[in-house]
Design a protein around this nucleic acid. Structure first.
Lengths: 377, 377
DNA sequence: ATCCTTTTGTTAATCTGATTGACAAAATTA
DNA sequence: TAATTTTGTCAATCAGATTAACAAAAGGAT
């Protein structure tokens, strides 16, 4: 066990990051920062002066208070930092340059053929994005990559994605790090989305939630006490492989009866008259089969959510992916089932919400990892 | 979000606790502490001087090194701190006074009738234990209580334990805190045992493990990254209520098909010729039914463990309770099933071990919470 | 208008911790 | 015996936050 002691350097860095994190999602005056952090106003002033000097923060126009002197809010300069967000999928990727204010400056789509060096197109697009005018090299903080699992976020390696052969066993992290000299952060789609929602109003103020990404598979990202839930070896949650049928169908993962085998949209619709979740939702008021299938989907998901929440209590579930369409129909079904069945001694009931539908969220959430890790304390 | 800044006070306290934690389980020289913490030798010396002065630490006789000057190891004084550990069960409790070196100084058993003030006997035994000769009041650090779940460790309230009516809804934490003026820490048996194993050789060096306590119920304690896994509201894991049969028997918790309904020993043995786990184990070589039942038990437990490890990857499972008897027979059964079915991209296989069988472990693990929390950083 | 109160933001002096760099102490090796 | 290695201590220094004072900027009371 190597544990590091604290010293003045650490203290300074910690407090600086603390202030930056506070300013990440809203502007605050020096006095307000002092109140929220427990720092004295004097210390806050010193830190603010340094951040102003470094060009990370700027003063906004003064704001009147109910009583007393006006305060001048500080805001994070959007141009204080940039990151490149890359969203990988089966046959290509979307990539974009994002500033720390959450604006996509430029973006790009690439299709991949699978021939030659798979990383070459990525290197090119990164090269191109990082030469965007007005972006100084030293302001480019890192590269965030959102990819379908399974992968090893720590070593930056994509493992053995089913139906995703293109990227089989590619050490994307180290290789891009090598090529660009920038830190690379890799996470699966759902974890990436979950991480993006944390601390934002889009997550309804919760810092203990499950993000459930249902489309051709079932992905999960769990935020517990404001941090991505990670186990040994930085393995992140795979709710898609919770067993919900002990005598069920075999899954590619080697187990049987996995949630994904039932709740992934193609699996749910297999053998029915529906070809997409949208089609099913649109038929809800006319076709009893649609109603039945949605109830089934809610049943499958709820079974897995109950198992999760009995292990790591969450207070809400955010739906993402196909389920966003007609979310208001399935939300109460899941909510009722989950709360009826989970242990809940003295806890608030679990709420189900739609996740944020922000334009470009796939690129934004990927890039966000780079910002988040660099402000991480 | 209230997040506190760091200052010199924090730094000092952090480093002091860091050193004390390092010395908790083995003696180390100043130079070795410096190497492990990253502190300079000078700082380590200063901290050590203070700890020596406070009587928390003492010097051992010098030890020769392969080369260079001899080093004088520092050890935590066993009498540096004491805690009272209380293990509650259905009809009474065991209580003991424990020193920080892990020695039980005095202990006591109480039977409870359920009449009158349930807390009065506890107050008396605490009073009595805390007046043990040679124990200064200011060295008594707290009271740790290990109880069958469910309970709310944070508010110190026992909730609604099935088959445990005596303690229904008792606010044991605040009440004993009020009566004694000491901090009170409450956790369920399994969590308490898990926490005790963490950081000790008894947990085989792991800091990501599940402790599975199987007897009349199924309790679980998960240690992830060296800390007890807690969700929102400080809810701890309840693997006993993972669904392993979607069409199974109703459980007292309101769900159906919970692990506990199948794997708790009385449930497993119900309707068989066996009256205890020991009887079953002893019959393994002569009675095929015993073999079948043990395989069943392994099957049930494995199903739940797989679900757990797909959410929060662990590297080992420690068996406690009845399963300790004949553990070497069931261990490989569980190990094989779990590793065959869980996601394990690039991870080491999960190992199953017996938990420590230390005399008085119930009292020790309860008391340990008080020590642990006070050294917690 | 003027004073009082409240709140914000700044400043210089101070405090408190770890670090630096030197050194003595205690052992082994050449 | 001298050189080397490692441990542990000391005084001087450094680097942060804090303290306590103050000026600045508003609103409300007289």
């Amino acid at each position: 066990m190597r544990v590091v002691a604290r010293n003045a350097d650490y203290t300074k860095e910690y407090n600086r990051k603390l202030v930056l994190r506070l300013l990440r999602h809203q502007p605050l005056s020096r006095a307000e920062i002092a109140r929220r952090t427990g720092l004295t106003r004097a210390s806050t002033s010193l830190i603010a002066a340094e951040l102003l000097n470094d060009g990370l923060v700027r003063e906004m126009s003064p704001v009147a208070n109910p009583r007393g002197r006006t305060s001048t809010p500080l805001m994070l300069c959007p141009e204080a930092g940039y990151a490149i967000g890359i969203y990988l999928n089966r046959d290509g990727c979307s990539a974009g340059l994002v500033d720390i204010g959450g604006n996509i400056i430029v973006s790009n789509e690439i299709r991949m053929t699978g021939e030659g060096d798979k990383l070459e197109p990525l290197r090119q697009v990164i090269q191109q994005l990082s030469q965007t005018e007005g972006v100084q090299r030293e302001r480019l903080l890192g590269i965030g990559i959102s990819a379908p699992g399974p992968l090893d976020g720590e070593s930056g390696r994509i493992l053995n994605p089913p139906r995703f052969d293109l990227w089989h066993q590619v050490e994307i992290g180290p290789q891009l790090q090598e090529a660009t000299g920038l830190p690379v952060f890799l996470a699966n789609n759902a974890t990436c989305l979950a991480s993006y929602h944390c601390g934002r109003p889009e997550s309804y103020g919760s810092s203990n939630f499950l993000l459930l990404l249902v489309d051709s598979g079932v992905g999960s990202g769990v935020i517990s006490k404001g941090k991505v839930l990670k186990g040994a070896g930085y393995f992140t949650s795979e709710l898609g492989h919770t067993t919900i049928r002990y005598d069920g169908r075999p899954c590619a993962c080697g187990n049987i009866g996995c949630l994904e085998e039932y709740a992934a949209i193609p699996k749910l619709l297999n053998g029915t008259g529906f070809h997409s979740w949208k089609e099913l939702v649109d038929a809800l008021d006319s076709d009893p089969e649609a109603v039945y299938l949605m109830a089934q989907e809610a049943e499958y998901l709820s079974a897995a959510i109950v198992n999760l929440t009995n292990l790591v209590r969450i207070d809400s579930v955010l739906l993402a992916g196909d389920l966003l369409y007609g979310a208001e129909r399935i939300m109460p079904l899941i909510e009722r089932r989950v709360n009826r069945r989970c242990l809940s001694y003295g806890c608030q009931p679990i709420r189900v919400y739609p996740s944020a539908s922000v334009p470009g969220i796939r690129i934004l959430s990927a890039a966000d990892m780079a910002f988040d890790r660099l402000l991480r304390i």
